[in-house]
Design a protein around this nucleic acid. Structure first.
Lengths: 239, 239
DNA sequence: CCAAAAGTGTTTGACTTACACCCATGA
DNA sequence: TCATGGGTGTAAGTCAAACACTTTTGG
């Protein structure tokens, strides 16, 4: 306690540290049941504070890069991944986020496609975890992940985020599985299908997935421009 | 151009400056037609860059205050107002926001009630302007105001933001005028009324507004807890 | 043939929109 | 009494949930 107070009065002199972190979501097909679930990569802290706890990937903001570039860079450096979607989540700046120093974190969230996620390196200090059952993370990162999950669920219900989890061609059942994994509940296949077909940006191909145990499903393609989605005020297509 | 390049290479050494700004909205009943419109306070810049242009109120982040506290403080200092709603908007960190120095601004947006807004001081360097017809502001503040407007319109359609523009008791027509001012279009009084009455948080009082030229309208009260609204991940009621 | 997923059709109820209509007040 | 906004009723249209049903494959 005495040490804590000393820290507080000490650090009141220094300017707040500014860092960029990223919550990265990917879909992985769990071995247990065949359905995909949400996973995310975390890095193990090798220094105090919170040494040996898992934390979100991130780092300081370099002087010559934009916030979004910094998020993409830290993501690339820690996991080797390229995101298919990247959007600012929130700026966290509470006084007691770190016991050592006042820290302001501008947090982004990202989606990666399964082919990308498959070649993600998993090392001693980088691990993948199911998003819905994390244990204690460093700093306030549990809160941040929960908020990112909330935003992801909102976006998937509203917009066209789901395709950023998928490859260029997909069955409608795969899209439904994305929705079900993100929202955590089953959806009516018939109604879901109609709903998707009624949107303008889904185009059917002439290809079918062969080799399944049942009737071969048709493959579809997403034709909506990725840029037309609202990921912040800087995408000029905001009306 | 030569000077610009020198600045860029110079400032690449320094860490980015961190500032907090706030977009403050209030409803004012325009003298022209009786209907209220959206206004916001701006401060005149007295120094370079953008000297003599109007800008959003704000300032640096002190080491001992949270982001939201900093927003409330800068709001209080420049306009003397206390907001009825305050939420983080976005963190702006583009490389070319300021010609002088790399700057990261965490921007909040706020609503104030008309009684508060009425006693807002208007000085040589603090002025109020209609939100829909601003001329050139300092930095990227036009973009920021536009984005704040977009968020405000979204929130008003979805949530219970409108009551933060109003006093403790109000007529349903006043609520409708808030919606109309924010959304910029007329709404059917009959349907709007029904829609509001069907929400749980509107309670009728036994009072009526006397003295109008027509049938006296009933006064209502908003009973929804202000805390139950989602203004960010830190409101613990986020499910 | 059977099981199961792909895909289609139909019914139902909830909700929105438009608009006709009555009520209460000041002028 | 009339004009006007407050307030109620109602029919048409839209949309999503529920679910029965047909199609097509592997076993």
């Amino acid at each position: 306690m005495g040490i804590g107070s000393a820290n507080v009065s000490e650090r009141a002199q220094q300017p707040p540290e500014l860092a960029i972190s990223t919550v990265i979501f990917a879909l992985r097909t769990d071995a247990g049941h065949g359905r995909p679930t949400l996973w995310l990569p975390l890095v193990r802290r090798t220094r105090q504070p919170f040494r040996d706890l898992w934390a979100l990937p991130g780092g300081p903001l370099s002087a010559a890069e934009s916030l979004q570039d910094a998020a993409a860079r830290s993501l690339q450096e820690t996991t080797g991944l390229q995101p298919s979607y990247l959007e600012q989540l929130y700026a966290f700046g509470g006084l007691d986020r770190s016991p050592v120093q006042r820290m302001v974190s501008i947090v982004y969230w990202a989606l990666v496609r399964p082919d990308e996620a498959a070649l993600a390196r998993e090392t001693e200090n980088v691990g993948w975890f199911r998003a819905d059952c994390l244990d204690r993370l460093a700093f306030d990162h549990n809160l941040i992940v929960d908020y990112a999950l909330w935003r992801l669920r909102n976006k998937v219900e509203y917009g066209s985020i789901a395709y950023d989890f998928l490859g260029p061609k997909f069955t409608l059942a795969q899209v439904r599985e994305v929705y079900e994994a993100v929202l955590g509940r089953k959806l009516d296949p018939a109604n879901f299908r109609r709903q998707l077909r009624s949107t303008p940006d889904i185009e059917e191909t002439d290809e079918y997935v062969q080799g399944g145990r049942h009737r071969p499903p048709r493959l579809y393609r997403y034709t909506g421009a990725a840029a037309q989605r609202n990921n912040g005020p800087l995408s000029q297509t905001v009306e």
